[in-house]
Write a protein that binds this DNA or RNA. Structure first.
Length: 429
DNA sequence: TGTCCACTGGAAGGGAGGGCTT
DNA sequence: AAGCCCTCCCTTCCAGTGGACA
């Protein structure tokens, strides 16, 4: 019988002990190295909840991959564990007077849910009972969503800890009305209490808040510093120990290299873990018995390429066309482009692809969005009498990105533009 | 020193699309 | 069915601006 295509791969020796997820940033380990102090700080604030009182609201600041979310979720897990121990045994805990089961954590990632309505709806739907109906994803007036949310929370006495991760994203997009409502909700609840934990990458986002909201929200503040290379090394070493059977799977310098590379990028533990995980996958695919530094460099390239590709593929059509226009103009010999030049090129691309061009005002916004995504570099520059505009330069591999954009079937005809341009260049040579 | 260019970027508002309410 | 809500994407309008140049 013909062997199945997967058989070879299934029996190939894997260097993993089994649980690949250990190397994922979302995995919360038993210990969080170099974050013990913050765990204790947070625990001392949150312990109030276990006796039925409202913990202070907390704002946590720190760059990506500094362990903010991990610490908060670690505490959430500890509460769940306490609940379980409480339920399993006749174990008498220290918080008898208030039922631990009445503490509820609600986690919302504001990068995913970034509207006033969406946040309220998501929180509300975490409190489903046999009487309540789902809050629909659109349709209800805001006031009704808020009333329903209060009713649900207040259905029985509880302490609700609402975690708003990436809070700066929500505020920059939808303003502070969510925070305004949530931070004053306690005065309208009869038997429950709500405490807020805001997590943000950006220290300055509170400047945009209403002063009342700012003071209510920032009762406690924690700032997480970036990890240094040594600390990152400890974090990686711990995970590696858990993930692998033997010590010789990983050359010594691999962990050090991952840590060093991630430390260069503001001490991002997430980055360090990704490097390690992807390097391991590459080593596995190459049927190597151990991971070496070469694999790490390959992983670094792969992660960067995948990021760009992912960002480009998920762009809306007109953003793709703008990006395409910028890249084509570049291959045409233009080093840096102005907004006017990009717009002219974009209109040409639209013409070929049979789409109606958007206005220049909209395109300036799209250029800013591309800049935010790191796909282009755009900075405002004045040319004196010749006006003031943005200077735009792509910051991604050009030919690869062009090909990625051309994969989009809906803008198929733009390919002919490049063919036309290529042939024009050939003639010039 | 004032002018002027080529925009920038804020504000307001339209309308489509999703859905609920009466 | 008509009227409403909320979000998203977009247009229109326009005051503001940095710096070369007359």
């Amino acid at each position: 019988m013909e062997p199945n295509i997967f058989t070879t791969y299934m029996h190939s020796k894997t260097v993993f002990k089994g649980d690949k997820d250990i190397l994922r940033p979302s995995y919360i380990p038993e210990q969080l190295p170099h974050r013990e102090e913050y765990i204790h700080d947070m625990a001392s604030i949150m312990v109030t909840a276990l006796s039925g009182n409202r913990p202070s609201n907390v704002l946590i600041f720190g760059k990506t991959g500094t362990g903010k979310t991990a610490v908060v979720r670690y505490l959430e897990r500890e509460v769940e564990r306490l609940k379980k121990e409480n339920a399993d045994s006749k174990f008498q805990n220290d918080f008898e007077e208030f039922n631990v089961h009445r503490v509820k954590y609600v986690y919302i990632n504001c990068e995913v849910v970034d509207t006033h309505y969406g946040v309220m709806k998501n929180i509300g739907n975490k409190f489903m009972s046999q009487w309540s109906e789902q809050i629909p994803f659109t349709g209800w007036p805001m006031e009704k969503v808020y009333e329903s949310l209060k009713e649900r929370i207040d259905e029985e006495p509880r302490v609700v800890v609402i975690i708003l991760d990436e809070l700066d994203k929500l505020v920059s997009k939808s303003g502070d009305s969510v925070l305004y409502h949530l931070s004053k909700i306690n005065s309208e609840l009869k038997q429950s209490k709500v405490s807020l934990i805001g997590i943000s990458n950006n220290l300055k986002f509170t400047e945009f808040l209403d002063p009342r909201v700012r003071s209510r929200l920032g009762e406690e503040k924690l700032i997480f510093p970036p990890y240094n290379a040594d600390q990152l090394q400890d974090i990686l070493a711990e995970r590696v120990n858990k993930a692998f059977d033997s010590d010789d799977v990983m050359n010594d310098d691999v962990i050090a290299l991952c840590a060093a590379l991630a430390a260069q990028e503001h001490g991002d533990a997430r980055r360090a873990l990704d490097l390690l995980r992807v390097a391991t996958e590459i080593a596995e695919r190459e049927h190597c018995r151990s991971v070496n530094t070469n694999h790490v460099y390959k992983a670094k390239n792969k992660i960067e390429q995948d990021c760009v590709r992912e960002a480009v593929i998920t762009l809306p059509t007109h953003s793709k066309l703008v990006m395409y226009a910028i890249l084509l103009s570049r291959t045409d010999g233009h080093e840096k482009l102005t907004t006017g030049e990009v717009y002219a090129a974009y209109k040409e691309v639209c013409l070929v692809s049979g789409m109606d061009p958007l206005t220049q005002r909209r395109i300036t916004d799209i250029i800013s969005e591309l800049d935010m995504l790191g796909l282009v570099n755009a900075r405002v520059k004045s040319f004196g009498r010749r006006g003031r505009t943005k200077e735009i330069q792509p910051s991604v591999p050009e030919m690869e990105t062009i090909r990625t954009i051309e994969e989009d079937e809906s803008i198929e005809p733009v390919k002919s533009l490049r063919t036309f341009q290529d042939s024009r260049q050939m003639k010039l040579m």
